[in-house]
Structures are given as C-alpha cells and as structure tokens.
C-alpha cells in the first residue's frame, strides 16, 4: 500500500537497446564526426597553441583582447597567462583552450543555424525547447559514458559532451536575439524588397549579434564548467589536473589547475563580453 506498484516500465532497457543499436549501426557516422572534430582540435592544440612559443601566444591573446576589448583586458590576459605559465600549467592550459575553442566553434556552427530556424518557426521552437531543457539539466555523467562508447576516450568525446551542454545557450540566445529585432525594422527591410536571406544577413543577424555573442559567452562559460567533468573520460588539460589533485587529496595541485581555469574563464569572458557590446554600437 505504501510502496509504489511495480509497473516495470523499462525506459532504461530501451535506452540500453538504443545505445547498442547506435553503436552497431551508426559506427561509420560516428567515425565521421570523430574525425571532423579530432582533426581541427588536434591541429589547434599541437600545431598552433603548443607549437607556438609561449610568449607568442601571450602576445596574440593580448592583441586580440586589446583590439576587441581594451588595454585593461589585454593587460589582464598578459598577467593571467604569465601567471599560469609560472605555475607550470602552460601545456595543460593550452590543451584546455584547444578543447574549449573547438567546442565553442562546434556549438556555434550547430547552435546559430538552429537558433535561426527556431526564430523563424514557432513549431520548431516549441519542439526544441524541451530537448534543450533536457540537454542542460540531464546530469552530464549520463551522457559521458555513451560518449565514450561512440567516440572513444579523450578529447573528442569531451568536445561532444561539452557541446551537448553548451549548444543550448547558443540556440536560445540566437533565437531570442532574432525574435527581439524590432518588427518595424524587419518590416522596413521587407518593404524594400529583401529576400529572406537578405533580411537575415543584413538585418536580423546584425541586430541579434549582441544576443548571439552573449550566447557565445555563455557557451564558453559552460564549456569551462565541463572541463573538470570531461577529464573523467580522459580529456587531458587543466580538468585532469583538478581531478588528480582531488583524487590524491593534493589540494594545492587542484587549486593551481582550478585557478588556471578561472583565469582562462575571466579572459575569455571579458573578450566575448566586449565583442557583444561592440555589436550593439557598431
């Protein structure tokens, strides 16, 4: 009477079967995705960030910060990155940045077009909303393991898992941004005979840019939040150092890696926030 009746509703069983079916039948598909993610990721990591001398990386980041934000952010970037290097966390940080940059690029490539579709179609918006809610609230551990099944260990499943978590803000804010464009401006565009594409490229996207950049900013923050979690499926970088520090009760080691993540987060946040502001006034 007090216990819930045993209905044996086998959702878990179905999911297991679905995962098994996917592994068996869509291997080629997952291989393509794996390659598509791995190649640029490894290139960014090995042939750019880790290949360049540390001071060149710092100069480039500072220059970008200066150009997009201001000299204060540039100074912050120089000091922050130097500090990370001084703690001996340079290589881990570059690996983490490579994962994040790739994740953010993938998230934007997938998220922005889906956001555009959501803005254009109320039906699609209603359809995607619960899925995005699920993607954001489902504990990441749940899809970390299938990610390993499909994509192996290491950087690629980390990017996939990060994207699952980080795509929703890209979609949501693109959708919101386009929907918030003043209807009169859209009407003005149409009254001059724009095609749908012209309307999108010349009016809706430029005006939605601050929102889209806010989405990118959130995507970056979510990607950083996933860094430690992704180390549990073998993604190298700062997250792994945090995990190692935790597992060894080496608080200092975890702290070094943790503070490095914070520094990377602050630098990226300031730069993308400035990018969003620029969109409103330019």
């Amino acid at each position: 009477m007090w216990d819930f009746p045993e209905l044996n509703f086998p959702i878990g069983e179905w999911v297991n079967r679905a995962v098994a079916w996917l592994t068996d039948n869509l291997e080629a598909f997952f291989d393509v995705i794996t390659t598509a993610i791995r190649e640029p990721l490894v290139w960014i990591k090995n042939d750019v960030l880790l290949w360049l001398p540390w001071w060149v990386v710092i100069i480039i980041v500072a220059a970008i910060a200066w150009k997009i934000a201001n000299w204060k952010v540039a100074l912050l970037a120089v000091l922050g990155l130097f500090f990370i290097g001084a703690m001996g966390r340079w290589d881990d940080t570059m690996t983490t940045i490579a994962i994040m940059v790739t994740s953010v690029i993938v998230s934007v490539i997938i998220g922005v077009p889906l956001g555009i579709i959501s803005a254009k179609s109320d039906r699609f918006e209603a359809f995607q909303r619960p899925i995005l809610d699920m993607m954001q609230t489902m504990p990441a551990f749940v899809y970390l393991v299938p990610a390993v099944f499909f994509f192996g260990l290491g950087l690629v499943p980390a990017v996939v898992a990060t994207c699952i978590y980080a795509i929703p803000p890209a979609i949501r804010l693109t959708n919101l941004g386009i929907r918030q464009v003043s209807p009169e401006v859209v009407e003005a565009g149409r009254s001059f005979g724009t095609t749908g594409m012209q309307l999108l490229l010349k009016i809706q996207l430029p005006l939605a840019l601050p929102n889209i950049m806010a989405g990118v900013n959130q995507t970056i923050m979510m990607a950083l939040a996933m860094v430690v979690l992704c180390s549990m499926i073998g993604a190298a970088g700062l997250g792994l150092e945090v995990l190692r520090g935790m597992n060894n009760l080496d608080v200092g080691r975890g702290f070094e890696a943790g503070i490095s993540i914070v520094i990377v987060a602050i630098i990226l946040d300031r730069i993308t926030a400035a990018l969003g502001k620029k969109g409103t006034t330019a």
């Binding site: 401006v185 003005a188 149409r190 009254s191 001059f192 005979g193 095609t195 840019l209 969109g279």
Partner: peptide
C-alpha cells in the same frame, strides 16, 4: 512583389525602422 517593392513603392515608418548598426 519583391521587384515591385525594390523599384516602385518605398515606405517611411513611424519609428523610422532604421538599422542602428
């Protein structure tokens, strides 16, 4: 219709409908 709007009819709006960027 697009050609018509491009060449024959143009419109001015109450709140201007300008592109702030």
């Amino acid at each position: 219709l697009r050609e018509l709007r491009r060449h024959k009819l143009s419109m001015v709006f109450q709140y201007f409908g300008l592109l702030p960027h």
